[in-house]
Computed example of a mutant assay.
Amino acid sequence: MKNIKLRTIILLSGILSIPGLNANNVKQSNNNVMETLNLTQEWDKTFPKSDKIDHCKVTFINRYGITLAADMYKPQNTTGKLSAIAVCGPFGAVKEQSSGLYAQEMAERGFLTIAFDPSFTGESGGTPRYMTSPDINTEDFSAAIDFLVTHPDVDPEKVGVIGICGWGGLAINAAASDTRIKATVASTMYDMSRVEANGYFDASDSAEARNETRRRLSEQRTKDYLNGTPLLGGGVPDTLPENAPQFLRDYYDYYKTDRGYHSRSLNSNGGRNATSPIPWINTPLMSRAGEIENAVMIIHGEKAHSLYFGSDAYKNMTVTPGKDNNKILMIIPGASHTDLYDRKEIIPFSAMETFFNEHLK
């Protein structure tokens, strides 16, 4: 033992201090190195390209060092700094689907927009692939804001977000932590933490049910470790069972047909990593939604199975004093959950345009 030379490590106030080492001589690699991404240059969206916008691919890095890929849409023949919107969703989709359609439509209405793929998904970086995280995915929205507020064509005081489906809940979560987000639209939103923890319509909201899920997912983690490859949980099934609920039939009609299928979409193909629900069960996304001071608009279809997510989120929000109508719940008559993915005649783009123009000023 006496031949072993020990280095002195001192623990002071919860900080590990090594003699000769301090913050001034430690260099961190933050936002310096981008992954090399394989970005498709051809137009491979599920919707036609508008002749009213300019389109290009862009990349940016989140604070976990993951490089994200996005499509940027800019209205043609504009001058000066523009209001900007970052768009993502649905959960398990890619930017070539619903989020791209929203982004292009809002660009036609005068906003500079980006539709981005989240970490581990689509053309974005990050491994393992097809993973989800309430923290990292919320950060993805803030990373998109980093990109927009520093873009030379954007007014940094006029930036908002649109989240679709599960990304609606994440958009609200991002707005609760990032005050640079001046206006938020959550369209046909899911609260992913609630559905993973409680099941649909809170039918499995018990410690017993959650513990059974935890046991199953924990066993799968062991299998994944031994196999070296995470099991995928499966997207929308290729063949619907005869007793499939209507909302699953609606998902099939979007993700498995020419209407919305995309080769990089998780829901169109093998789905997310099967153990992805683990962190969502213990992470309530809506816990600080009532503290959002900036504007929030929640849009839902009257016949959407997910309507209860948006309705309950809205109930927990507070109109900011002196800012009348900065919290809005809009119910679209007769619309289902997936109608708000791509039915341009149903999605209230004009109302969204008015909302953003009012609150990004």
Rank of each mutant, 00 (worst) to 15 (best):
Q220H: 00
N198H: 12
D191Y: 05
A174I: 07
A174C: 01
M192E: 12
V185M: 03
K223G: 01
V185P: 01
S177Y: 13
I164D: 05
L170A: 09
M189C: 11
A203I: 08
E208A: 10
G199M: 09
L170E: 13
A207S: 12
G166Q: 03
G166W: 04
A207L: 14
D191A: 04
D224H: 00
N211E: 14
S193V: 05
T188Q: 11
D191L: 06
G166D: 12
N173T: 07
R180S: 04
G169S: 07
S206I: 06
A171F: 02
M189N: 12
N198G: 07
N211M: 13
D202I: 01
D205M: 05
F201R: 10
D202C: 09
W167H: 12
R221V: 06
D178Y: 02
M189F: 02
A186I: 03
S177Q: 15
L170V: 11
W167M: 15
N211T: 03
Y190F: 15
T188M: 15
S187T: 06
K182W: 01
G166I: 06
K223L: 10
A186Y: 04
T213K: 15
A209H: 08
F201E: 12
D202L: 11
S218F: 10
V195G: 03
T184D: 07
K223D: 12
Y200M: 14
A171L: 07
S187E: 10
A209E: 14
R214K: 10
S204K: 14
R194A: 15
T179Q: 14
A176I: 05
A171W: 06
A186E: 08
A171K: 02
K223C: 00
K223A: 10
A186N: 02
G168P: 06
V195E: 13
C165I: 01
A174P: 03
E219W: 00
R215H: 10
A175K: 05
Q220Y: 00
Y200T: 10
A175D: 05
N173P: 01
L170F: 11
M189Q: 13
E208F: 09
A183D: 04
D202H: 05
A171D: 06
G166K: 04
I172L: 12
A174K: 07
S206L: 08
I181L: 06
R216I: 13
A209M: 07
K182V: 04
R214G: 02
R194V: 05
N198T: 08
R216Y: 11
D191E: 13
V185Y: 01
G169Y: 11
G199L: 09
S218T: 14
Y200R: 10
A186H: 02
V195P: 06
I181F: 03
N211Y: 09
A176M: 05
S177F: 09
A203G: 04
A171Q: 03
T179C: 03
D178N: 00
S204F: 09
K182H: 06
Y200Q: 10
A183M: 01
A175R: 02
Y190W: 15
R194L: 12
N173M: 11
Y200V: 09
A207Q: 11
A174Y: 08
S177M: 13
I172V: 14
K223V: 09
R214D: 11
E208M: 10
D178L: 00
F201V: 09
I181Y: 03
S193K: 06
W167P: 08
A207M: 13
F201A: 11
S206Q: 01
S193H: 06
D224R: 00
N198Y: 14
T184M: 05
D224W: 04
L217P: 02
R221I: 05
R210Y: 07
